[in-house]
Amino acid sequence: MSPNTTPVKQGRPTPRTHIPVVDPSEFHSNPPDYNVALRVGTTPRRSWRRKRLQ
């Protein structure tokens, strides 16, 4: 399960992985055995490259 507050996304699966998207309150009331949180949109290489160019 993946918690998300956007009503449009709730009840639908995530793309490619087909993980169901649920309301955060439902997620907390019935938690899975484990949860992996990934941070999207950051890469260490970009910050390294920026420091190198300065």
Rank of each mutant, 00 (worst) to 15 (best):
T14C: 04
I19V: 10
P7Q: 00
P3I: 04
R49W: 10
V40H: 01
Q10C: 08
H28Q: 12
R39E: 08
R12H: 08
R50M: 15
P7K: 00
T5F: 10
P32C: 07
D33R: 13
R39G: 13
R46E: 15
V8I: 05
P44Y: 06
T6H: 05
V40L: 07
V40E: 02
A37N: 03
K9I: 00
V36S: 06
P20E: 09
T17N: 04
R45D: 05
F27C: 11
R16P: 01
F27M: 10
P31E: 04
T17L: 04
G11V: 06
R52V: 05
N35Q: 14
P15E: 01
P32F: 06
H18I: 03
N30E: 11
D23R: 14
P32D: 07
M1Q: 12
T5Q: 11
N4A: 09
T5P: 15
Q54L: 12
F27L: 11
R16T: 10
T6G: 02
R49I: 13
R49Q: 13
N4L: 07
G11L: 09
N4I: 04
F27N: 09
D33Q: 14
L38V: 14
R52I: 06
P15L: 01
R49P: 02
T6L: 04
V8H: 05
P31R: 01
Q54I: 06
D33V: 11
S25Y: 03
I19E: 06
R16I: 11
R39A: 12
P44W: 05
D33E: 15
R50W: 15
A37R: 03
T5L: 14
L53C: 09
P15M: 02
K9H: 02
S2E: 10
Q10R: 13
S29A: 15
T42L: 14
E26M: 10
S2A: 14
M1S: 13
D33K: 13
K9S: 01
P3W: 04
D23H: 15
F27G: 10
L53A: 15
P3D: 04
P3T: 04
K9A: 02
R39Q: 08
R39L: 13
L53H: 12
P20L: 13
S25K: 09
R12P: 00
T17I: 02
T14M: 06
T17P: 00
Y34F: 07
P7D: 00
S29H: 12
T42Q: 14
R46G: 14
R50G: 10
Q10P: 09
G41C: 02
P15H: 03
R39S: 11
T14Q: 04
V21L: 03
E26P: 03
A37Q: 02
S2T: 13
P44E: 08
R16E: 07
D33H: 13
V36L: 13
F27T: 11
M1R: 14
I19P: 01
I19D: 05
V21N: 03
Y34C: 04
G41E: 01
